[in-house]
């Protein structure tokens, strides 16, 4: 039995040791905002925060999370940077199909929390692990810049 701290609450889960955090979130805890895209850490759709850092939930066994706090797209309500980021996303209509966007948003928040005024190169570096097949990259970059300008 594992105890996970997810979005500010403790959850006891009975799962195999090698089960990635992604599937615990989606299929056990019923938090489907974190998406499955590739299963090998290549696409970033499953990006969540563990201890405030962006990690690929598809490649992180839940048993290795320990008592570090996990935040998913569903757990952002009180977060000031997150509020600014989602607002910036909506202001310029970043999303298309939207499937990768929770991962993009989690990656962007992690970036902005460590560096509130990233350069374009820094944005590229932080965000290039997140694939968007709809090709919303230009708007994602613009939205991140807008947050940097707004805060």
């Amino acid at each position: 039995m594992l105890t996970l701290q997810v979005n500010g609450a403790a959850h006891q889960v009975d799962v195999p040791d090698d089960m990635p955090l992604l599937w615990v979130l989606r299929d056990v805890l019923g938090l489907p905002g974190t998406k499955f895209g590739c299963g090998i850490g290549e696409c970033g759709a499953c990006t969540v925060h563990v201890d405030g850092k962006a990690v690929r939930a598809c490649s992180l066994p839940a048993s290795l999370v320990g008592d570090r706090p996990v935040t998913t797209i569903e757990g952002l309500a009180e977060d000031e940077v997150a509020t600014e980021v989602t607002k910036a996303w909506l202001d310029i209509d970043v999303v298309q199909c939207g499937y990768c966007q929770p991962g993009q948003i989690m990656a962007a928040i992690a970036l902005l929390k460590s560096n509130l005024h990233p350069s374009d190169d820094e944005i590229d570096q932080a965000m290039s692990g997140n694939i968007c097949r709809c090709g919303t990259y230009r708007r994602i970059r613009a939205a991140i810049r807008n947050v940097a300008g707004a805060v």
Binding site: P32, G33, E74, T86, W89, L90, G98, Q101, I105
Partner: peptide, 16 residues
């Protein structure tokens, strides 16, 4: 976009 708010909040339901 009408689907924007749900999609940025992670609450839009996809088939999966």
């Amino acid at each position: 976009r009408l689907d924007g708010p749900a999609k940025v909040a992670g609450t839009a339901t996809f088939g999966i």
